[in-house]
């Protein structure tokens, strides 16, 4: 079965709007009858959970306790704050960001699903690339040969966030690799690096569904910031998705670079070196 047929089947097989008028009416009555008790219960519980820290502090300083006690508590609080601040500043030196990124990737349910579906060995899960961002680092973790997870890590908040789980399912043939290198080498700077013997170590293909609109479909998708769903009144015309961008990561003399190719224009969209992986 073709993708197009499957989508048509899914769209045509949907159930018509069904509604239970009596259930709807009676549920509304029951909910509104319980409006006060149900909505207040959670709000009161939340209020109860709040600890009045400020009133404890002001109460302590307004109390009749001796001045030396108040001074001691103040000094202790200042020392505690200093220790905390120092700990925060020191911790980037001892934190293993790579391990944090890897842990975040492996704890993601979508990633766990991919690992299970494709029976990926943990040895094939690796940090593939790392970028410096404004607030921290962005890691690309390769899951097997075809999947990539982007993990953003904030240095100051000590947290990690999965920003994207990207899945690629098409194997890259030698002909395809050659085509990609040819497109990349239209940029003189990249061309010079390949002439010096640069080699590609990772590919990622980003696909969009093939749509048909009034004029050039793909241009419409591209100009509208690459969001294929911004195309109005489009019809699905192909049974598969089309290449939209390809990201390549390559290496030369220990330096790693990233290129993003625009596959609609067959041109280099962006290019730059990666920060080194510690």
């Amino acid at each position: 079965m073709k993708n197009e047929d499957l989508i048509k089947k899914l769209e045509s097989a949907r159930l018509p709007e069904a509604e239970l008028h009596t259930h709807r009416r009676l549920l509304k009555t029951a909910l509104l009858k319980n409006y006060e008790s149900a909505s207040n219960k959670t709000a009161t519980a939340a209020k109860r959970r709040r600890i009045p820290i400020m009133s404890i502090i002001t109460g302590f300083f307004k109390s009749n306790r001796p001045a030396w006690q108040k001074a001691m508590v103040s000094t202790f609080a200042v020392v505690l704050l200093l220790i905390t601040a120092l700990a925060i500043n020191m911790s980037p030196l001892v934190r293993d960001y790579e391990a944090m990124a890897m842990e975040a990737a492996l704890n993601n349910p979508d990633v766990q699903q991919i690992i299970e579906d494709e029976e990926i060995d943990t040895q094939n899960i690796k940090i593939a690339a790392v970028f410096d961002t404004q607030n921290g680092l962005k890691y690309y973790v390769s899951i097997g040969e075809k999947n990539i997870v982007a993990v953003e890590l904030s240095k100051w908040l000590f947290n990690t966030e999965i920003v994207e789980v990207l899945i690629e399912t098409t194997p890259v043939t030698d002909t395809k690799k050659q085509e990609l290198i040819e497109i990349a080498c239209t940029d003189p700077e990249i061309n010079a690096l390949f002439e010096k013997g640069a080699s590609i170590y990772m590919y990622y293909f980003d696909y969009i569904p093939a749509y048909l609109a009034g004029d050039s479909v793909l241009d419409v998708a591209h100009k509208a910031s690459g969001q294929p769903l911004s195309i109005k009144n489009a019809q699905l015309m192909a049974d598969d998705w089309v290449e939209f961008t390809v990201r390549l990561w390559f290496e030369l003399d220990g330096t790693r670079y990233s290129i993003m190719l625009d596959m609609l224009d067959k041109s280099v969209f962006s290019f730059g070196p990666l920060s080194s992986i510690s």
Partner: peptide, 14 residues
């Protein structure tokens, strides 16, 4: 994220 949803959809259909 959008990339994730599109990937899930593509993969789910397959």
């Amino acid at each position: 994220r959008e990339g994730t949803v599109k990937s899930l959809l593509n993969r789910g259909l397959k």
